[in-house]
């Protein structure tokens, strides 16, 4: 592999843009196809198919075997609320390869001392999330219990079609949340995308156990089915 190609591949990933590396396995010849250039590529069909599935694979085209290294943007997790559960969730999510950001306008919570290894932003979600740029490769877990902080984040996540949207709170709390979101113009189908009560039902008790249940639900959403936006594209 030419160093230039490796460099370009790494650059595309840092910029959160999809890219596919095409390798001719018999000659070793390689080229990088950026997401924006796929439509005009002679191998567009195969490249697009693998990118949609998010899977690297060998493909046969006109008697030649090519390997397509698919690089989808790394999954991100934005946690709303620098709370106790978030401390455990942030650590665990990092191990699972998520790029983690914590957002909480309450400076007493959003401190570096409480989150030594994670990006923490002490700012309101409706101000900072547009700057972060939510997308279909981003998951959101709203954990503050406070509608003033959680609701604006959930609205932006629904609009951005985040692959996972979860909100902490009891069934009763969520029923009120559903009313507020409906009043704000969100459809029942959109609102139905919110995982609430948050997390898989594993009987979690401690904050760390709740973090496990939330993280398991996030991985399930990422891996078990194609990203929602991709399904819509395919339809």
């Amino acid at each position: 592999m030419k160093l230039d190609i490796l460099k370009a591949l790494n650059e595309e990933r840092r910029a959160r843009r999809a890219a596919v590396l095409v390798t001719d396995l018999s000659s070793g010849a390689q080229r990088l196809v950026k997401a924006a250039d796929i439509v005009v590529d002679p191998m567009a069909e195969a490249i697009d198919r693998q990118l949609r599935m998010g899977k690297s694979a060998s493909v046969e085209i006109e008697g030649k075997t090519y390997f397509l290294t698919v690089q989808a943007p790394p999954a991100r997790l934005v946690v709303i609320g620098a709370v106790h559960v978030s401390q455990a969730l942030a650590e665990m999510a990092r191990l699972v390869d998520f790029d983690v950001t914590i957002v909480d306008p309450r400076t007493a919570f959003a401190s570096e001392e409480r989150f030594p290894n994670v990006r923490v932003i002490a700012e309101w979600p409706d101000k900072v999330l547009p700057e972060i740029g939510l997308d279909a490769y981003t998951g959101i877990a709203a954990l503050t219990h406070d509608p003033k902080i959680d609701d604006p984040a959930l609205k932006l996540a629904l609009e951005a079609k985040c692959f996972y949207i979860g909100a902490l709170g009891s069934k009763k709390t969520h029923a009120k949340r559903v009313e507020r979101l409906a009043a704000a113009g969100f459809s029942p189908e959109q609102i139905g995308r919110i995982h609430a009560p948050i997390g898989l039902d594993i009987g979690a008790v401690s904050p760390a156990e709740i973090a496990v249940s939330v993280l398991a639900e996030i991985v399930l959403s990422l891996r078990k089915k194609p990203l929602r936006s991709e399904k819509e594209k395919a339809a």
């Binding site: 160093l3 490796l6 591949l9 790494n10 990933r13 790394p74 390869d97």
Partner: peptide, 17 residues
């Protein structure tokens, strides 16, 4: 820290450089 797929190619570039 575990090496993720992301880190691996970035590290390959660093080593080469």
């Amino acid at each position: 820290m575990l090496a993720t797929e992301q880190d691996i190619l970035a590290e390959a570039e660093n080593w080469k450089r």
